[in-house]
Amino acid sequence: MSGQAPVISVVDAGIRFRRNRGGRRNFKDLFSGSTRRSRPGEFWAFRNVSFDVSPGEAIGVVGRNGQGKSTLLKLVAGVVLPDEGQVTVAGGVAPLIEITGGFVNDLTVRDNVFLTAGLHGMTRREIEARFDDIIEFAEISDFIDTPYKHLSSGMKVRIAFSVISMLEEPIILVDEVLAVGDRGFREKCYKRIEELLAGGRTLFFVSHNEKDLRRFCTRGLYLDKGKLVLDGPINEVLDRYNAEYHS
Rank of each mutant, 00 (worst) to 15 (best):
N48E: 14
N48T: 00
N48C: 08
V49D: 02
V49I: 05
V49Y: 07
F51W: 01
D52M: 08
V53G: 09
V53C: 08
P55R: 03
E57W: 03
I59N: 03
V61W: 13
V62W: 02
R64Y: 04
G66I: 03
Q67N: 14
Q67A: 12
G68R: 04
G68N: 06
T71I: 10
T71A: 04
L72G: 08
A77S: 11
A77N: 15
A77K: 02
L81C: 06
T88K: 13
T88G: 03
V89E: 04
A90Q: 13
G92L: 08
G92Q: 14
G92S: 15
V93D: 08
P95K: 09
P95R: 00
E98I: 11
F103Y: 15
V104H: 14
V104P: 06
N105I: 00
N105P: 08
V109Y: 01
N112L: 13
V113Q: 05
F114T: 09
T116C: 08
A117K: 06
G118I: 03
L119R: 06
G121T: 02
T123L: 11
T123Y: 07
E128R: 14
E128C: 04
E128Q: 14
R130Y: 03
F131S: 12
D132K: 09
D132G: 11
D132V: 08
I135L: 12
F137Y: 14
F137C: 10
A138C: 10
E139Q: 15
E139A: 14
S141F: 00
S141V: 05
I144V: 15
T146M: 12
T146W: 02
Y148G: 04
K149P: 06
H150F: 06
S152F: 12
S153L: 07
G154D: 08
M155T: 07
A160M: 09
V163Q: 11
M166C: 10
L167Y: 01
E168G: 11
E169H: 15
P170M: 06
P170W: 03
